[in-house]
Amino acid sequence: MNTTRTALLIGAAMALAACGEAPQVTNYKAGTYSGKPDTRPWESAAYGGDKALWESDMRARARKQTEIGRMPPG
């Protein structure tokens, strides 16, 4: 009887654990990393961990997507 009761209590505790209202989403905060182990883009062979260089490269690259300023005036 005692073992049955213990088993029932453990079972009840486990079943109740399913009711926890854990947040469904990792709340995203800008600039933070959430999740799986992965190398960051700036940790690649090309950049060797130089985050500032990578970011300035990305900015420059993004600016290349506009033709404004590259066109001759008029």
Binding site: L9, A12, A15, A18, C19, Q24
Partner: peptide
Amino acid sequence: RNGPITQIGGWMLAGVFVALV
């Protein structure tokens, strides 16, 4: 799916289990 089904469903199962105990 993330709302009522997970939450009410979870409480319902726990409730039935407790009722049986």
